[in-house]
Amino acid sequence: MSFTVGKGQLEEPVELLRIALDERVFVKLKGDRELVGTLHAYDQHLNLIISDAEETLQKAELDEETYEQIVRQERRKLQLVYVRGDTVFLVSPLLRHTGTFL
């Protein structure tokens, strides 16, 4: 069974979010931030209401002795979050993911 949306089924791109309502979504945001949570509402700006979210923040630091770049991940839980649309790069419904993820 395929979870992918058949082409021609969507009138406009933002409609993908209507299909994803009440499902888990993956969101990529400005500033190396990522969110995984349940999508409750969206609008044309891609403002999002997401609940039970986990935010992952990537921080790149330079080791002072070896000058090697170290990527550190910080995670935190958010019960309910309003994401402003202009910070969004990408939204992807998790149920529809195929192959490897994360």
Binding site: P13, L17, L46, V91
Partner: peptide
């Protein structure tokens, strides 16, 4: 659409030519 919001199917993310992640459906702003 006219804003260049884009939905891709069976997509993959590359950074500096390196595969980072795969997605089923994805909406790009």
């Amino acid at each position: 659409d006219g804003y260049l919001n884009i939905v891709l199917e069976n997509s993959a993310e590359f950074l500096n030519g390196e595969l980072k992640r795969r997605y089923g459906d994805t909406l790009l702003r």
